[in-house]
Simulated assay, not measured.
Amino acid sequence: MQTTESRALDCAYFDSWRCRSCTLLATPYERQLADKQAAVADALPALAWDAPFASAAGGFRNKAKMAVAGTLEAPTLGILAVDGSGIDLQACPLHEQPIQDAMPRLESFVREARLTPYDVPSRRGELKHLIVTASPDGELALRLVLRSSEAVPRIAKHLPALADALPLVSASVNLLPEHRAVLEGDEETVLLGGTLVMRVNAVPLRLKPRSFFQTNTAVAAGLYRQATAWIDEASPASLLDLYCGVGGFALHAARPGRAVAGVEVAADAIEAARECAAELGADASFAVGDATSVDLEGTGAPELVVVNPPRRGIGPLADRLERSAVDRVVYSSCNPATLAKDLAAMPSLSPVRGRLFDMFPHTGHAEVLVELRRGA
């Protein structure tokens, strides 16, 4: 058994068994990283590996997804126990410092606005989740997930005081009326701002309330730098970023004389990518669409494709890439199992090098970047 002294991060919640989400916390960080690298290398075909990109042991999460429970007088912000009761984790050491600093004020806001915590066993109450995202500049975006719109006028009334107390630049309400084990619903109403700027490697990426962004900003910055280095080494005349989100890979790789485009199903993410491209003066275009149905055939095929899919992988897109004229693929994966399956479906595109990026310390999850070359 590992001793507390050998750990990279002290956590009172873990030691008291209030939260055991960080399943590898008792394992020294160097061992965690080595074990992840070995597991990823074992799951994928043989290729050259760069040294793993390590994370800070704590203070690295830019987003806090807090389940709200308890009572109006004593709300808890954290996770839910098996019986549905709340476990307060306001001082979770994984979160970036601006998030930790904001938690006591956010708890007060819940009480002041009389946002009754949702009680899972009885299916009563209003406030289900509180989601806070921090930017590299220390600014915050807040989302409140509610069962109904009943509390929205009170939130709007007390929001100015909250914005005065915190570096809050965006606030929105999300409605999730159903009793379901999901984080958010389909309806979002912006009450303040609406955009959080994530300045990564001098690229001012923009996050709308529903936009996806990597959880670990410092490691995401390293991921973008590595992908950009591989892309610049290949020097493609044309690049297509599929599942582009807010345009992180495309905007990092945009260069004069290089045709860069991105495709993403989320319209708000495409809007954000376009805004960033305009600010940078980047020669990059973005379109709303299904990444799996983009035209990759014929002389119009891009020389290089970047894919950054969800955990399920690229599915039928793998076969289309295999049959296309695309010479290189840079694949960013958060699930080595689906990555291995997708690589097997593209035998003409050989994986030549890869790198592990530790987005999620103290867990078994891994982000992997792999470069594929046709006929290598």
Rank of each mutant, 00 (worst) to 15 (best):
E150S: 13
S170P: 03
E150D: 13
S170D: 02
G185R: 04
A151M: 10
L162A: 04
E178S: 14
L166V: 03
R154E: 14
A156Q: 12
H158T: 08
S170G: 05
L166E: 06
P160Q: 02
E150W: 11
K157N: 09
L166R: 05
L166H: 02
L159M: 02
A161V: 01
R180K: 15
A171T: 00
E184M: 10
A165D: 14
A163Y: 01
L168C: 07
H158E: 13
V182T: 14
L175N: 04
A171F: 02
E150P: 01
L176W: 09
A156L: 06
L166S: 08
L168Y: 00
L175K: 02
A171I: 00
V173I: 12
L166D: 09
K157V: 10
L175V: 10
L176Q: 15
G185N: 03
G185D: 06
S172K: 01
A156R: 14
P160N: 08
L183G: 13
I155D: 05
P153F: 09
A161E: 13
A151R: 15
N174P: 02
V152F: 11
L162D: 04
L183A: 12
A171Q: 05
E150V: 13
V152H: 08
P153I: 07
V182P: 11
L176P: 10
P167L: 08
A165K: 12
S170H: 00
P177C: 07
A171R: 05
A171Y: 05
N174H: 02
H179D: 15
K157L: 13
A161W: 08
D164V: 12
L183D: 15
L159Q: 01
H158I: 01
R180F: 09
E178T: 07
L162H: 04
A151S: 15
A156S: 13
P153E: 10
V173Q: 11
P177H: 08
P153M: 05
V173K: 08
S172E: 07
L183C: 10
L162S: 09
A165Y: 06
V182Q: 13
A171P: 00
A181K: 12
R180E: 14
L176K: 11
A161G: 11
E178W: 05
A171V: 01
A163W: 02
S170F: 00
G185T: 08
D164P: 04
D164T: 14
A151D: 12
N174C: 05
P177R: 11
A171W: 00
E150F: 11
A163C: 04
A156F: 02
H158V: 06
